[in-house]
Design a protein around this nucleic acid. Structure first.
Length: 203
DNA sequence: TTGGCGATTGGCT
DNA sequence: GCCAATCGCCAAT
């Protein structure tokens, strides 16, 4: 196993967002191992009005303040779990939201968790990604250097990384802090808008 | 103690 | 494309 370690990953939120594209997120449970290649993320840097950390440390977002290379998991709309990799130093409050994955390990297990769903949609969207890998409240605050149940590994880098505004937010809605592998079929959002963003980036 | 609301999803029109 | 589901957090009462 070649686990990606904190010491080798960028601390800066946007740099970390770029670095995470193409890496593989691996989940180990009693049922077995599952995982895939990260193809879409969003950055929530320090001072960002759209960030859960903007109003300061609160119980829900406390994991965002643990520092670089911890996992932050929260429930959105009472329905979906969302997984983030924390960035920046301890006490700062910033993270990178994992929005989409191309599953390539434990596909049978993922198919059970995502019954009735087309494979391309298994982890296409942040709530779907968490559901596909059985990530929930119990994984909040994990140390990605040390956790036996979740870690990251090197993967195939993206040939083209495009950027766009983030999805589903109301504050700072125009900031181009969403990043994705422009050639992946498993990215969320509308294909047309994604293609336009990639073309505009010259990616 | 309470009411509004959110980094979404899936089903229906 | 529209909208309900569903729940924990948090600010205001």
């Amino acid at each position: 196993m070649t686990r990606l370690l904190r010491a080798h990953m960028p601390v800066d939120t946007v740099e970390l967002a770029y670095a995470l594209i193409g890496t593989r997120l691996i989940r180990q449970t009693e049922a077995g191992r599952s995982g895939g290649r990260i193809v879409e993320v969003e950055a929530y840097p320090p001072g960002d009005p759209a960030s859960h950390a903007f109003a300061g440390e609160r119980p829900r977002c406390a994991a965002m303040f643990l520092g670089h290379w911890y996992l932050y998991v929260y429930l959105i709309y009472g329905v979906s779990w969302c997984a983030n990799v924390v960035s920046e130093a301890h006490g700062v409050g910033a993270a990178v939201l994992l929005r989409a994955l191309e599953p390539d390990d434990g596909l049978e297990l993922i198919a059970e968790r995502r019954a009735g769903v087309r494979p391309v949609d298994f982890a296409r969207g942040p709530g779907r990604l968490a559901a596909a890998l059985a990530i929930g409240k119990a994984q909040n605050g994990l140390d990605l250097d040390a956790a036996a149940e979740l870690w990251l590994e090197p993967g195939r880098p993206a040939a083209r990384i495009a950027s766009s505004p983030r999805i589903g937010i109301t504050r700072a809605a125009e900031a181009p802090l969403r990043f994705f592998d422009a050639d992946s079929p498993a990215i969320s959002g509308s294909p047309r808008r994604n293609a336009l963003a990639a073309a505009r980036d010259g990616a």
